[in-house]
Design a protein around this nucleic acid. Sequence first.
RNA 1: GGUCGAAUGGCCGAGUGGCUAGGCAAAGCUCUGCAAAAGCUUCUACAGCGGUUCGAAUCCGCUUUCGACCUCCA
Length: 490
Amino acid sequence: MQPLKIYNTYTRDISLFTPISEPFVGIYLCGPTVYGNPHMGHVRGPVVFDVLHRYLKHIGYKVRLVRNITDVGHLVNDSDEGEDKIAKKARLEQLEPMEVAQFYTNAYHSMLNQLNVLPASIEPRASGHIIEQIEMIETIIANGYAYESNGSVYFDVLKYSKNNDYGKLSGRVLEDLIAGAGNEVRELEGQEEKRNPNDFALWKKAGPEHIMQWSSPWGNGFPGWHIECSAMSKKYLGAQFDIHGGGMDLLFPHHESEIAQSTACTHQNPANYWMHHNMVTINGQKMAKSLNNGIGVDEFFAGNHALLEKAYTPMTLKFFILQAHYRGTLDFSNAALQAAEKGLSRLLAAHQTLQNITPSSASTIQVDDLLNKCYAALNEDLNTPILIAHLFDIVTNINYLAAGKQTITAEDLEKLKTGYETFVFDILGLQAEKSNNNSHLDGVVKMLLDMRVEAKANKNFALSDDIRTKLTALGIEIKDGKEGSSYSIN
RNA sequence: GGUCGAAUGGCCGAGUGGCUAGGCAAAGCUCUGCAAAAGCUUCUACAGCGGUUCGAAUCCGCUUUCGACCUCCA
């Protein structure tokens, strides 16, 4: 088993990953709220945690990955009178609330498929676990850490913090939170029902305008934002599991509250390792609706957004994300994306080259050393940029081998092939781009390339160059190689 | 205002005390009828000012700039 070290937000250090019950690993990821099309901010989490998922499996763990779908309980905006976010959208579109949730769940799955992200073991929906959430709330009340007020149930943060470190995960001090820090006072609905402004809702009373509501011991309502993750992680992974992941924006209050709820219910901190990926910016600015720079995933792949110079493929996006470490911010720009696009194609081209290497009686390159460096990079808190740097070292060596500047034995060659494919395809989850050429076009272009070869053979360079120039003008680039000509469509 | 984090070469982005990633771009070379593609080579940076040290991008302090979060709200 590889010694994987990961950064734990809870302890704020990098430590060796040790599962509770080897070889089993339980992971819970906070999934999307399905009320809109996935945008660029939604892709990073799935991609970085996919590498974690794939790597754990590769080094021999049996992983259960749970990623929820949030389809209840979120509000449209502050001006809204507490109407469920999904219900609001449903009314506008004249659709059933669950139809809206399903529509955007499908869109999310489509994105994951395009990015070649492995499916979750279990993908529970909040709306399908109302009973579990109610039971958990009842236990928390029975344990004395929550109270009912006017049909809603709130978590008693002050009481909890007497015996527990509320704020440890997100690095907050409750006294500071209570003080309010002097910023503008936010108008939160139901604030007067709370014993303390820091208390958060476990269950919220629903008015008649709520299309999505359920009956409960406290009347009709819907679950609070945080309780679904606590209830579903407990159900499928147990009161205590290995890794809980999500975006840094969820640190507070979401994950902090999860810890408080779960601890108040089960007397255990739910997760041993808390992992958080950083956020995405574009051209140095944060993505925000007000800046009109939020890019939908579909727009990104189609290239039809004002900030995009061209379309980028899912694999380019994935490779681009993995070229940065997951705990740093990541800036989108056309220049950076095009750099990633070219780098990726070089990485994939080397895989093709590797297939044509002829073995020798001796190796002049150190295959074990090259591959061990790749493992070491991932073991150091999933450092994919370092891994990719080492893969490019391998690329250079592959090209040396192809040029005859280095030699390799058959045994080492096999090891190199297997290792390279393991890292590129199995662990990073990259794949060759699907060719979207239709067979008619392919046949026509190949015919023109054949004619060009013939013209060149006859020293009719005027004709051969004419074919090249006209194809280039159509966006078809000719690449002459030793083995003949190929082309790509730009 | 508070808390946390970040500032690296033309661009992106690793690196936590000496051995100074990687990708893209650029330049040179190889290949080639020419060009492109592909491959090889080259390109020594760490926001500013102090300090610690034999030695700092890396540790400490201050300054500047930027980002995330600050409770039902993506």
